[in-house]
Write a protein that binds this DNA or RNA. Structure first.
Lengths: 333, 333
DNA sequence: CTGTTAGCGCGTTCAC
DNA sequence: GTGAACGCGCTAACAG
């Protein structure tokens, strides 16, 4: 690969002149500029961002660490993060924490070595994630959805508890009284918050939550399927279910169908995440839509501000999701 | 951020000694090693991969360029690519071509500047993608699913035509005679190949394909919904449909449900891609599963071989997908 | 066993 | 309007 020096020699000018025609950083006679540009094209010269990074101490690269990028919710989030970053001249290094704390630790180390300019952290918040955050002074970080205890970095929250509460209120407003909740593993904050919102709404309405009304499974469609199978087999069958994740709701819908239970006639279902597929389930899923686009945009914006050196105090922004009414909810029979 | 020089000074040794304790690249007395390691920990020194890259002329970074990373199929592919790359010490820069040829061109340029060691290219093959491939000599490239004309790089094919043929044969074997095909835009190779497989199977079986039996829409759930709506309104209603993408099939299932058409009782449906959701549709979708995991693994392996300098002739590997039988297909009524 | 030194490719003073 | 030269942080050859 051609180097600046070679271009300079071939064009009969100095290295610095080449540098200046590339970066438009000082006046160069049209004559020389043309000649240099010609040689650049001819030699297919492409400046080295790594040399530039070494000199400038910035890489224009942002790390994005998520629990699992193949989960549709994260995939959609990543897509917008990538979009926002690209528009502002940054690249994304994609990192999957999936696999536990050690992979995450290894990744964090690698990212620091690569001298990323900033990090967007979507922590799962699982227990094995404690104490692996990089030094506070290392690189700017923006946390999405979840504030790791002890990590002083900007946070963008998605109002998950409020979202869950709104979802449950919707069910209550329809007239449901026996409402169950299906959620992910108990130790995940994402799960805890959503269950929290459910409980709050139930309490506000003076509704009973019996033991067994809240069922925890994996945050997957298979988990949702299992949860529904259990729920449908009980004596006290709910007339509505708040499912803390669309992926789980997919599994739930499937289990209901298999059991001959009609949604929403016999049971109403509300999901959470508004993943692409939830428009096209049978029936289409009523769900809480987190502001993915705004979250991503804001995360990148704030991160870049920090990268530019803003010393503003730590920000803790909470964005609100909204209920998307589709066809999986109805008044009780 | 601490530098090697600072560590050396603080430890009272030379820079090269520090380098050698870090890389285990020559014998260092236990005494000195301990001392240096101590200073490294104390100063929280992290070696700079960018300086190292400048010196070694490799970045341990692989570019991954896909049409749209939020499409579940690509998201799943990316997840395995990331996994395989990480295991071998490489990072992934994620690039979405979505947005057309100019974004793709810009990305390619950026990737070259960043001096990625190799590129995994999942080209959509749309018409505006012509002539934007980097110079043949630039970096090693492995193409997934689609060989760009004129780009001499290793290719890993997924046997899409064969897959589509198998899907259609399955329908035929069940006894269907009037079979329609729903696919993406006509100008996308991905779409053309799958339609090609459908036509071949029909021809082999001596079955008629009437005009209008093949309908093209966007490669999305919305597109699938639209396609099915049209199909169901026709006089000549098919008893089975091969849908060239699970995402589209999701939309199709939804449209069928809305029209009161029961799957598979009235119409059988086969999809393509085996995305996560297709296990949990109602009914669960029979589909062709491309070997995503193997494709990703092989792509990374071959790419790294090339990076290491293998001069083997261009490889053109075809992996086969397989039919996954679920509940959306049945013999005609 | 350890230190000195010359670049890697570029941006940026400083001098002309 | 242009060029020479230093240094970013690191590795590797060469000395000792």
């Amino acid at each position: 690969m051609a180097t600046m020096k070679q271009v300079a020699e071939r064009a009969g000018v100095s290295i610095s002149t080449v540098s200046h025609v590339i970066n438009n950083t000082r006046v160069v006679s049209d004559d020389v500029r043309q000649r240099v540009q010609g040689v650049i094209d001819e030699m297919r010269y492409i400046p080295s961002a790594v040399a530039r990074s070494l000199k400038n101490d910035k890489t224009n690269t942002i790390g994005v660490l998520v629990p699992n990028s193949s989960n549709p919710y994260f995939a959609e989030l990543i897509r917008w993060l990538e979009d926002a970053a690209f528009q502002r001249g940054y690249n994304i290094i994609l990192c999957n924490a999936h696999g536990g704390g050690k992979k995450q630790t290894a990744y964090l180390r690698l990212l620091m070595e690569k001298r990323i300019d900033g990090l967007v952290l979507v922590a799962s918040g699982a227990d094995d994630e404690q104490g692996l955050m990089p030094g506070r002074d290392a690189v700017p970080i923006v946390q999405l959805e979840r504030a790791l205890p002890g990590l002083d970095a900007d946070v963008i929250l998605a109002g998950q508890e409020e979202g869950a509460r709104d979802a449950t209120r919707h069910l209550i407003a329809l007239g449901h009284r026996v409402i169950a909740c299906v959620s992910g593993p108990e130790d995940l904050p994402r799960s805890r918050e959503r269950v929290g919102g459910f409980l709050r709404a139930m309490e506000e309405a003076g509704l009973d939550v019996a033991p067994g009304d809240i069922v925890h499974e994996e945050f997957t469609s298979a988990g949702g399927h299992a949860a529904f199978s259990r729920l449908l087999a009980r004596d006290r069958r709910p007339s509505a279910v708040f499912v803390a994740s669309d992926l789980m709701a997919l599994g739930g819908l499937c289990a209901a169908g298999r059991a001959g239970v009609r949604i929403p006639d016999q049971i109403s279902v509300v999901g959470y995440d508004d993943i692409g597929a939830s428009c096209y389930t049978s029936p289409p899923l009523t769900t809480i839509a987190p502001p993915k686009y705004d979250m991503a945009r804001l995360a990148i914006e704030q991160l870049i501000e920090r990268i530019k050196g803003t010393q503003a105090p730590l920000r803790n922004t909470a964005l609100a999701g909204h209920l998307v009414l589709r066809a999986s909810t109805a008044p009780p029979a």
